[in-house]
Write a protein that binds this DNA or RNA. Structure first.
Lengths: 341, 341
DNA sequence: CCATTGAATTGAAACGATTCATAATCTGGT
DNA sequence: ACCAGATTATGAATCGTTTCAATTCAATGG
């Protein structure tokens, strides 16, 4: 049905090998032949069959990307950066969301293994990386995204979440808040733990400061709203003076609940810091101060690392990229507060 | 290197054909053989090579999806719906964003053609569909998403954008606004044209009503903000009494600019209607009234149509699904306004 | 006990691009 | 005219799976 190299070869009066060479190493073919074959390819509308090419090559020209939540703007940006960079290098990206479920993650990995992806970018759901070890041993480079492997046994591109938590908490302390609330969860998520940890380390070092945890079941606007309602319902004296939310979706939910309650002013009564600096943090009811992660850059860098590792083969040096997040100050923590030096 | 059916066959003492049968039609193989082969597959860690499978089958088990902007929440939802429905039918989705660029779109189509995708879902950048014709003639079903083909030569799943524009404008007229501004562009985008057209048809029918166009270079918050600044800078008497933005991102930008200018109150001085009803429209400074498109449903339906068309072969009947959008009223057009019957 | 049927299994052909050892052709130097 | 060396071109083998006509085997009925 479809046109194959054989058809092109016949029509151009050359061998299939030559057609393949025109496609892949034109320098090896005489200019006149290149023109002739190219013309025939154009005329017949020949399109390479990637499956055959892959079969011969042993691996595909696409990467697998497994994110925790495809609809989270942070991962959207990571995906965007990765897709961009991959496309520039002639690769495509197979994207899938694990939605925090181990079985979804497993199914995606099955799929990607069958496709013989040239590399794997993943934000793993769990800390057990044994499956990833096996995949790498089978020859597929693996790069962890937004998640350092404690033991550096995998290359990774991540953001220093502990430092991010520290930056957020310090900002609130600098704004003279002492009783701080942390909204986030579930604690199974490493990023949540790390951000909390950073905040705790700051609070612990300041006499008179305290940190209260308001747990959530997911990192969503909905869960944030629920937490915000819980906080608004507290007697005024028991409410925290500031809240650090584990991501911006939560922060937006918290903000909505606080504002709608009518009992709490932001930032006067409660200052609020989010995390991720998604595009919409800026356009919330009160623009939200947030800790920005260079999401697009993370996606791009992850692909770069993957390309290098694929190039270098199984004994590649592991690279640990750690970006440092930075505070983007907005109205939710008041204007004119001194920025931390 | 990797384990193949041949290895499994040798180890289990059967032929390769039998291994393949165990994998694809276990009913044809005796139970005892199934168990034995399955056990060997497990033990050797055999993983099917999808490239070989595809090569034999002639086409892949994935669909290509080309959206205009992967970061736009509307398309995220479409993608989500498509992925869901595809997975339910044993297909995966290759997603790519054209970012409104003809060359990006071309590269993605090249890639998808080489992958021999089983079908193509696309929101085309331009109105020239000749390339899509060729693809379909080569045997790949094509479904246009969020974009009707005027001549019905392609199946499509879209929303009636003209009607959407009408609904938005009528809502503003009902709120006693007469001088209406339209923020949107570039006009090359069909959706923008249609929404404008709908609004114009309503305005034209109301004596004393007028529509002024504020062009933008893209459908982004940034461009919306720029347009909003232009509007805020106008002398009060020359400002429109209401604004219809071609999508919610623009509307959010406009809103930010108006509010930050300090000169304009929303909705008192200027009422605002957006389009798409993205999740964040609700959590803007002033919750934004918007025209909602059933995005997830669109993605699902598009896959359904694609499946039917793939089933029916080249002479399939073209289906034109047109959803009607509906107004979601919020504070940006004032509370308690009468909803249109 | 043979013939017939049906189930289970086999093994070679096919899919289409790439590779690589080999062959053909061309250069220019003597 | 001849040859060495460089440049081009060839085509069979290969990748791993699926398919399908052919074969084997066992069971059933006459």
């Amino acid at each position: 049905m479809a046109i194959s190299v054989r058809d092109v070869a016949r029509e151009a009066g050359v061998s299939v090998g030559t057609v393949s060479n025109v496609l892949n190493r034109p320098a090896m073919v005489s200019p006149s032949t290149v023109t002739r074959v190219t013309e025939v390819i154009e005329r017949l509308g020949f399109v390479r069959n990637d499956a055959a090419r892959q079969l011969r090559a042993g691996r595909s020209r696409s990467f697998g990307l497994v994110v925790l939540d495809a609809r989270n703007p942070f991962f959207m940006d990571v995906t965007h950066g990765a897709q961009q960079r991959a496309l520039d290098n002639g690769y495509s990206v197979l994207m899938g969301a694990s939605d925090d479920s181990v079985s979804n993650e497993g199914r995606l990995l099955d799929l990607f293994e069958e496709q013989r992806v040239a590399g794997l970018l993943i934000s793993p759901v769990r800390t057990d990386l044994s499956r990833l070890w096996r995949i790498r041993e089978a020859g597929t480079p693996v790069v962890l995204v937004d998640r350092g492997s404690g033991d550096q046994s995998f290359s990774s591109v991540s953001v220093n979440d502990v430092e991010g938590g520290r930056i957020a908490a310090q900002h609130l302390i600098d704004a003279s808040r002492r009783r701080i609330g942390f909204v986030g969860g579930p604690m199974e998520i490493e990023q949540v733990r790390h951000r909390l940890e950073g905040a705790q380390s700051v609070v612990a070092a300041v006499p008179g400061a305290s940190l209260e945890i308001f747990g959530t079941k997911a990192l969503s606007v909905f869960e944030g709203r629920a937490a915000g309602e819980r906080i608004a319902a507290l007697p005024a004296a028991r409410r925290p003076e500031a809240i650090f939310a584990a991501n911006d979706l939560l922060a937006m939910g918290v903000l909505q609940a606080l504002v709608m309650s009518g009992k709490v002013r932001v930032p006067e009564d409660i200052a609020l810091v989010g995390y991720d600096d998604i595009a919409f943090a800026e356009s919330a009811v009160v623009p939200i101060t947030s800790v920005r992660q260079p999401a697009v850059e993370i996606g791009r860098t992850a692909v770069d690392v993957l390309l290098r590792e694929a190039e270098a083969g199984p004994d590649a040096v592991r690279e640990q990229f750690v970006f440092t997040p930075k505070l983007v100050q907005r109205a939710s923590t008041g204007a004119g507060l001194p920025a931390r030096p």
